[in-house]
Design a protein around this nucleic acid. Sequence first.
DNA 1: CGTTAGAATGAATGATCATTCATTCTAGGT
DNA 2: ACCTAGAATGAATGATCATTCATTCTAACG
Lengths: 210, 210
Amino acid sequence: MKAAATPQKRRKILPKAQRRQQLIEATIACIARYGLASTTMHMVTREAGLSAGIANLHFKTKENLLRETLRYVAEEYHKGQIDIMRGREADNLSNRLTALLHFQLGRGVTQRQKMSVWFAYYGEVGARPVYQKIVSAWDRAAARELEFLFASVIREGGYTDIDPGELAIGYAALIDGLHLALLVTPRELTKQNAKKIGRDFLRRAFPNHI
Amino acid sequence: MKAAATPQKRRKILPKAQRRQQLIEATIACIARYGLASTTMHMVTREAGLSAGIANLHFKTKENLLRETLRYVAEEYHKGQIDIMRGREADNLSNRLTALLHFQLGRGVTQRQKMSVWFAYYGEVGARPVYQKIVSAWDRAAARELEFLFASVIREGGYTDIDPGELAIGYAALIDGLHLALLVTPRELTKQNAKKIGRDFLRRAFPNHI
DNA sequence: CGTTAGAATGAATGATCATTCATTCTAGGT
DNA sequence: ACCTAGAATGAATGATCATTCATTCTAACG
């Protein structure tokens, strides 16, 4: 008697772009679960439900796969922010600040999986100039946008003694630090609380807006 | 003719504790230079100028070595903070706040090497519960101390509407975020500027003290 | 329906690494 | 000066991995 027949998955052929996307998502899942250091090509392809050589076929090397995955994650996060800061949904500056905060500390971004991947790459930035370049390019873009938004708020509120560039760096640092706290000491900090802390920061800077 | 005789380093025997210390420092150097992911036992022992098997002799496994290294780094950083917060050198609360800020963003802590190691471990926290436990234990201790310090400042300054616990989390997050920015986008942020941003945060919360 | 370009597979290869342990050497005790 | 416990060495081992490529299979097209 044969062992219960495995359904013998039929081989499926997809457009290159779609396979690449699928592999990148599998990579994210593996990094979150096992860490960047111990994620192997086999783990990634197994997670994607595909055969061993497929990731090399589409990305040539592991190095490439990891780089593209970082690009994807960085773009997703920073584009989300930038879209809100430029967004037309909230023409009111106060609302725009609030929307930004809710995005940065909201369900989508603060998933454990997302934050794990994010910091896994940050952790290697010190040793891998390529990662640094990818991340810092997006960081700069978001920082400029945030500075512009803060400058508008300062003008509108007639606040004095505030440098929008410095405040933007401080706010961005606060958000990153809160993500880290949510990842490392989740028992000490709820997402609700993190939002309140972010909001308090903005309120102290822009009391007439928040 | 023989090749220029290598000085043939004489084998040196040291107390266990001293060797362990030496190996931990070599590990830190390697993690900063090559990243946590690609640091090998051979790199560590070569960095220490010792033979291949020595790290296993003293730490049994690589896993152990990395754990002890994290313990060392975490203790160094958090103890430094805690000492200042409890310290007698600055009986004046304002001075104590300033001293803390200068420690957290000063030469010792913001060396690229130190920050690299720090975030390399943070990056693995999502996947390795052991690291999370080590880091979060120290984090909690420092957070309590900071909350206590802030509570004193609030009492002394008669500030209303500030929760010392929340402010402590916010401040700690800001500092972590600034470290990250110094590591990832050093071109956009000088240490001087980081200190000013930290100081501004404290000034907005405690205007009578800073 | 038959052909075929090229997508997907997975066993095989070779490189890299952590770990072991038989051997060598050191330094403190006698 | 000699002995010896145990610290240090480094070649050898076996495990793990990234990568390759001969082969198999799919689906678009004539």
